[in-house]
Design a protein around this nucleic acid. Structure first.
Lengths: 412, 412
DNA sequence: CAGTATTTTTTCGAGGCTCGAAAAAAAGCC
DNA sequence: GGCTTTTTTTCGAGCCTCGAAAAAATACTG
């Protein structure tokens, strides 16, 4: 069961709170931290002094507005970039990208590579992933604190403990324990994250005003994915990354989905489904990959003339609307971010979506449900992975101050 | 943001842990508590000694098996029944029931009453609820510790903070802030809970083996409701009690639902929907109340002959199956408890349900999804309310030992 | 039946942590 | 240069948990 809380947990948690405050706020003063955490000035002083000695935080130069107030000026605390580093690995259709990020969140190296993920055999795919990470880690130009965490993101389903890819549209392979593979290869803790979950994490980071406690990130791309944040926490399934919004049932026994089943939301709203419908192909037609350029052309045509193209987007909107309606019946309405290439065609989707959602219980306040769009998902995924990894370093490594301290007594 | 953890929180949390261990386990010894909480024997000794002095716990007589082991016998700790009491109020269709429950969880008084909830005006409904509680509290026969909490449960939607009934099928009235009303009337903290959520709480309590971290309780009655536990926590919507499984969309634009919309799961699987279908009425026919006896007769007939009745249950199963499939796409499969009068007809529902669920992404392991049935929901709801209220007393009142202690120095 | 072994519970001192108050530090203001 | 204001550090007090040892309560053993 839940375990009692010990005396040393206290310090650990409060250190974690300080680190989290610094990461969120940028350069808060000790006084500001005391205010947001509710801890006393003495405690914050003690903790930050420790963290500075351990090389995790640093006092930032007085900088900026040379203080207009009188009294002793606040001195900002900042994350020390060289305290650690993390690596992000994002694997998507035919594309692999890696970045090394310092403790303060700055990208200090990256590499990208095209591969044929759909046909690659298992060993080769794994090999490419480890090789690209190794190249970055071995790069002699890179002077970086020890890498403390690797976060890999992938399109597809991962397990709920963020250890393995279970299924992915980008490869016929299944059940690849990437986290274990990376940990074994590099001796660095690693996780295997779901792409849409990372999108949600990044959105929360980018715009905490809008995306705070409850919101939904929906990927409109070849497939339909979702990242869900409820009560400030990333939602996952009981076994898998969960949130397979695209495979909720829109019409029982309906159009053929890429997953082999029928009537899923994705079978109406995925790129291939929109394409299939616009080309007046049968709903049973085998899903095909459609390039981003083709999708943009399709959207342009739909805007131009009222034909099968526009109707295809309308149907996609309807499927998304009823799907969202069912989702909202479960969790209540929340702000939505539409991400991915088809989010750029959201103008074509929105009317039917709103009409559908208004017919559902969850859409009672259809008007008040707000949508935002972001056509490019890859930067979001990388950013989410970076934040995930850095937060792990904050909370799980640096919070438990079992650091060096071997320096000696040259302390003030 | 999240607030720092202070020094006094420590004791409070550990006291809460001890109380929770005693409530769950029954009569654990100090040693057992130390083992399950991970706290040291010294700490448990200190805390339990405090709790005993404060009149919250009591040492139980050595009792039972006069110890077969050698060594000093363990002495069990038990909740002291007279330490406090709670009141549960369950309001359902034409029925109001109240119970007074002691701190150890025993029912010590109850009262039930029939009312015409559907036609009652607002003041009268509220008046009946407060009057029945007042009668129990004023009962001179009742010698009970001070009542520390009232938990009211109702069929329908409540807000996510458990303060008010927002909408209910048992009355045309809406937005009744029962928690505030009861608090104001009796000066006792109160909550307004959703019936299905309380069913889930009770199931978790009754059978923690099966219903532990992830499970679903579905009410099959006039309407279709759901209580959902994920990662050990009761799931609620962002604004409301949420989990309106019955109003997920099964067939866009389909059969008329009691909520006024079309195609909801409930419009196929609610009692009125099964009845409507069995009677070969139109899907647009206005929903009517069907008595439990009629439903049982209907089920009997469906078992007897393969006619419209059996087909009606088949359709209900299909709707529930596709709904569960969509739900499982979001949260992954989990054990299900079917509760309510139509759960007694689950044999008629199950085949079509399983067939439908197998056609969905969430039903990949359809065979492994297990169902249990419980035809009577009212006892579950009351039990859930009681546990809710008692847990509140444990965690929020007794954990922060701002108790009497006025006694003096007559301590050992 | 007295002594010994075993297990549970309590006691006691040590070590940490947070807090409030006061002191120290670092500015601007007059 | 002295005074005010604000931030940060220092210091002692008060709790809390922990480990070790003592005390308590029983069964076993010869």
């Amino acid at each position: 069961m839940s375990v009692g809380i010990r005396h040393d947990d206290l310090r650990r948690r409060n250190r974690a709170m300080v680190l989290s405050a610094v990461r969120r706020t940028g350069q808060p003063s000790r006084t500001e931290i005391a205010a947001t955490t509710g801890l006393s000035h003495s405690t914050i002083s003690a903790i930050s002094s420790d963290l500075i000695q351990e090389g995790i935080l640093a006092e930032s130069k007085p900088s900026e507005t040379a203080s207009l107030k009188r009294g002793r000026p606040q001195v900002g605390l900042a994350l020390k970039p060289e305290a650690a580093a993390v690596v992000t690995v994002v694997l998507s259709l035919n594309f692999l990208s890696v970045a090394v990020i310092d403790y303060a969140g700055q990208v200090i190296a990256e590499e990208q590579r095209r591969l044929d993920t759909l046909t690659m055999p298992r060993d080769e795919l794994i090999g490419e992933c480890t090789a690209i990470v190794r190249r970055r880690l071995d790069d002699p130009d890179l002077d970086v604190g020890s890498v403390a965490r690797i976060a890999m993101g992938i399109q597809g389903i991962t397990d709920s403990h963020a250890r393995a890819m279970l299924w992915s549209p980008i490869t016929p392979l299944t059940d690849i324990p990437f986290a274990d593979i990376l940990e074994k290869e590099f001796g660095i803790p690693a996780t295997m994250e779901n792409d849409c979950n990372m999108m949600a994490v990044a959105l929360q980071w980018r715009d905490p005003e809008r995306y705070r406690d409850n919101f939904i990130a929906i990927l409109l791309s070849h497939g339909i994915g979702m990242g869900l944040v409820l009560k400030g926490e990333l939602f996952t399934g009981t076994h898998s990354s969960g949130g397979e919004f695209g495979h909720m049932i829109h019409r029982p026994g309906g159009a053929l989905c890429r997953c082999g089943r029928r009537g899923c939301v994705e079978a109406y709203a995925g790129n291939y489904a929109i394409w299939r419908s616009a080309m007046k192909m049968s709903e049973d037609a085998e899903p095909v990959d459609v390039g981003d350029a083709d999708m943009r052309a399709l959207a342009a045509k739909a805007r131009e003339t009222d034909g099968a193209e526009r109707e295809a987007y309308r149907r996609a909107g309807e499927a998304l609307g009823f799907g969202l309606g069912s989702l909202f019946a479960l969790i209540d309405p929340a702000p939505v971010a539409m991400v991915g290439v088809s989010a750029a065609a959201f103008d074509l989707i929105e009317p039917a979506l709103r009409e559908a959602i208004a017919q559902t219980a969850g859409g009672q306040h259809s008007k008040s449900i707000s949508f935002d769009t972001e056509p490019n998902e890859l930067p979001l995924i990388r950013e989410g992975c970076a934040i995930r990894a850095l937060t792990f370093v904050d909370q799980e490594i640096f919070a438990s101050g079992v650091q060096a301290r071997a320096g000696g007594k040259n302390v003030a």
